Computed example of a mutant assay.
Amino acid sequence: MAMTSAQLKRWLPQLSAENAQGEYYLTDVIALAAAEGIKVCTAQPVSAVEVEGVNNRAQMARLERVYQRQLADKLMAQGVALADPERLDVRGRLTCGHDVFIDVGCVFEGEVELGEGVRVGPYCVIKNSTIGAQSVIDTHSVIDGTVAAGLNQIGPFARLRPGTRMAVKPRSAILLKPKTPM
């Protein structure tokens, strides 16, 4: 619903809980607006889910799953491979490069960026992190506030705390000692 704050302040005190459920319904302001001769316009939802009410935690959890599935579908349309789209949780914003694979039970919190070719193993939690191209995050790893660049393998069961910076040294920077004869 869209209305001015002045209209809302005028109509809210007129709402009543005198109904079978004993509840106040914000939608009752529509009748109040019509009674004042205010034009009431409608919009058609794309899906019934858009207008479902939430009266208990089970209903809230169901709608959360619908929302998470919509996010999973968008990721897959962008080329992300998900082992199981029903078992993904995005609690913020997830940006993925090409050819990313995400296994089951992963949680992404805050701002997370996965570079091209990143592989995320099952049951990982990644929060406010940037994972560089071709990195592999192995099973049950928790990554928080990390920047990983290059061909990194993290985990399994790794815990990287905020501020961690990882990078692979270029081959030319590696000094090789000559073999000494025995």
Rank of each mutant, 00 (worst) to 15 (best):
L82S: 03
S141M: 04
C41M: 14
G117V: 00
R171L: 15
A61T: 11
Y24V: 14
E52V: 10
E109A: 09
R91K: 13
N152M: 15
I174P: 04
A43P: 07
V90Q: 07
D89E: 11
K169E: 11
V80I: 08
A20L: 11
L26D: 13
G121M: 06
Q68S: 04
A133K: 11
V29T: 12
R159C: 11
P45G: 02
K169V: 11
N152T: 05
R161G: 00
S129V: 05
G79H: 08
D99M: 05
D89F: 08
R10S: 11
A173L: 14
S135W: 02
E116P: 03
L71N: 08
L12K: 13
Q134V: 10
V118W: 02
V142G: 01
V142H: 04
G163D: 10
T139I: 07
F108P: 06
R87G: 01
V107H: 03
K169R: 15
M166Q: 00
L75S: 02
G53V: 11
Y123C: 06
M166Y: 05
G117F: 03
V136D: 00
R87W: 07
P181D: 13
T4V: 05
R62T: 13
R57V: 09
P85L: 08
D99K: 07
A158E: 05
E18S: 13
R69F: 13
R119P: 01
V147Q: 11
Q70E: 15
E109T: 12
Q21D: 14
M1F: 14
V66C: 14
V107L: 06
V118E: 03
P181S: 13
E36K: 03
R69D: 12
V54I: 15
R165L: 13
V90S: 08
D103N: 05
L12C: 06
E109D: 09
L160S: 01
E116D: 15
I102Y: 02
L82N: 00
D84F: 00
D28W: 06
D144V: 13
D99I: 01
G53S: 15
S141Y: 05
Q70G: 14
M76I: 10
G79I: 08
L175K: 15
D84Q: 02
V66S: 14
C41Q: 14
E18A: 13
A34D: 10
T4H: 03
A72H: 07
I154K: 07
S5N: 11
S16T: 15
I143K: 06
L160N: 02
G105T: 00
A158T: 03
D84M: 05
D84A: 02
A167V: 09
G163K: 07
I102L: 02
W11D: 09
Q21K: 15
E116V: 07
L32Q: 10
R165T: 12
Q44R: 14
D28N: 12
V80L: 08
G37M: 09
I102N: 06
T130F: 11
P122K: 02
V29D: 04
